[in-house]
Design a protein around this nucleic acid. Structure first.
Lengths: 246, 246
DNA sequence: AACGATGTTGCATAATATGCAACACTCAAT
DNA sequence: ATTGAGTGTTGCATATTATGCAACATCGTT
């Protein structure tokens, strides 16, 4: 496995730009990459010439360019699941009042490929493109339980409630498999609870997970059964829509 | 202006992947880039290690990876305009029955940053991330007319109705400026008509364009005045929402 | 105008990306 | 099961290019 260093540096620059809302100057890149200013400048020029970066004429700082957006929607538009699922996401948010999400397994994580936000002021802030760990999120656990390609190789701690023992997780995932849904009980983000259920494709295989997330105050233990019922029902309807025999 | 060749090759690979829905094999990359298979393999491995490409375990072909989606939504989420405008896009589609779009000026083109699709089966297929030429699209003409940074350097022909003379375009844009909206009368895509109007920000500057597109049969000359009125009204409401004095 | 900060460009050379060849893997045909 | 073709990966010598340095250009502040 060989890494082409110059390409890697360019991609690292994109990672830096993803975190730099106000853009970055050449000197900052040079420092982060541990290269000379001149090298940083040439890398940025290359990225800019292909549309991946943009230099603000006034501040001379660089920001992410539009080419990324074009490519991203190529990726997303290649997923028919998204189009089928979106009306169900809207229904789920309408019926529960919480944010709803659709995720698929990607690179060992749960990739959020669509969502509908809650109308409530207090809500969980996530975005499409988020890649969540599998072991401590409801969507992730569903993928672990129902997608044979899903596996965890690390189980970082996010909260005191995060499951960090592999045997404990296996038992938990077995239970998810039996009950047909998963919950995240403040295991990833303190104060946030999630519920998710699997989405089956036409051959019965699990092609994704659909679920809701909300503040623990609203997604309370008393409300869990009712909300869970809604998530499961919508997931099954969507699965049937996709042609699943289930 | 120096181009870092290895980085450029990696970005060219991303461009190839954007067009290759079923992915591509290493040999195809090598041919397109005019490099040896081994070089192509190393470039792809680098892209894959950063999440920009993925290799399908079964076919061994490479496709675009999820990292692109994550970055894309960073770009889009940095535009408050999108959040403000989305309800107006929905209203516009509801009131006209056509697809509605929101675009900004980016790299000399109109970058579509949001849209709401028409419920009709027959509709215009565009996607977020599309970068349209300015001289022959309604959104683009609005940007040309109202954004002082917008200019055209080339005027490629798309249809027999495309304006290809610079003087003619200048007159046309002057008219757009006077009337406060623009139309695309089958100038970009045969059989497609569009209407767009400017969106003004809090300092009165034009921060984007909002409009609709539909088949010429539905966006007929008889319907144009009524549809135009709706677009202008919504654009002005959105502008007021953004704090514009207009 | 002078100065400091920042981005850009030319040039010699240090470093790395390349092509070649061998190898590993997969699949289809016999 | 074996063979051959097709495809992706990896080691190595060296051809090529990316690098750092220094000079320059640009911009904003005093």
């Amino acid at each position: 496995m060989t890494i082409i260093q110059s390409l890697a540096r360019g991609l690292e620059i994109l990672d830096l730009l993803a975190e730099a809302e106000q853009g970055m100057g050449i000197g900052e890149f040079a420092t982060h990459l541990n290269v000379d200013k001149s090298s940083a400048s040439r890398l940025l020029q290359t990225l800019a010439s292909y549309g991946y970066a943009e230099q603000d004429a006034d501040t001379r700082r660089y920001t992410l360019g539009p080419r990324i957006v074009t490519l991203s929607n190529r990726v997303l538009n290649r997923m028919p699941l998204r189009d089928h699922a979106h009306p169900f996401l809207r229904r789920l948010t309408r019926e529960t009042g919480e944010c709803s999400h659709l995720a698929i397994l990607s690179q060992g994580k749960a990739l959020y490929i669509d969502q509908v936000e809650s109308p409530s002021i207090l809500r969980v802030e996530t975005e499409i493109g988020t890649m969540s760990p599998l072991h401590c999120t409801a969507l992730g656990k569903v993928l672990l339980a129902f997608n044979r390609h899903a596996q965890v190789d690390a189980m970082p701690v996010f909260t005191p409630r995060t499951i960090t023992d592999l045997e404990a997780l296996k038992l938990h995932i077995d239970q998810v498999r039996r009950q047909g849904y998963a919950t995240d009980d403040e295991e990833h983000v303190p104060g946030v609870r999630c519920i998710a259920a699997p989405v089956h494709g036409f051959n019965g295989r699990v092609v994704g997970a659909i679920g809701i997330s909300g503040p623990a105050g609203r997604v309370s233990y008393e409300k869990l059964p009712e909300l869970t019922e809604k998530v499961i029902t919508l997931a099954e309807e969507l699965s049937r829509r996709l042609g699943s025999a289930r």
